[in-house]
């Protein structure tokens, strides 16, 4: 199970399985530079693999006013 928290929407999703960050981004309709993909204190790149139990923070970067 992978838990994903999206900022600034403050939404939480859980997914059974995603192999890579790129698959997660596609599932959420995000392009590579639409959001920071954060695991712990590191930023992830699209080819990084996701593991069961991962808690991922997605921080969208477009200013909303």
């Amino acid at each position: 199970m992978i838990t994903v928290f999206v900022e600034p929407d403050n939404e939480t999703f859980t997914f059974e399985k995603h192999n890579t960050v790129l698959m997660l981004q596609k599932r959420l309709g995000l392009r590579v530079n639409d959001a920071l993909i954060i695991r712990g204190d590191r930023l992830l790149t699209p080819d990084d693999r996701l593991e069961d139990g991962d808690e991922i923070r997605i921080r969208k970067v477009t200013s909303t006013g």
Partner: peptide, 9 residues
């Protein structure tokens, strides 16, 4: 914006 976001983080 992505780059400034990365810098801030």
């Amino acid at each position: 914006e992505f780059e400034t976001g990365c810098y801030a983080f």
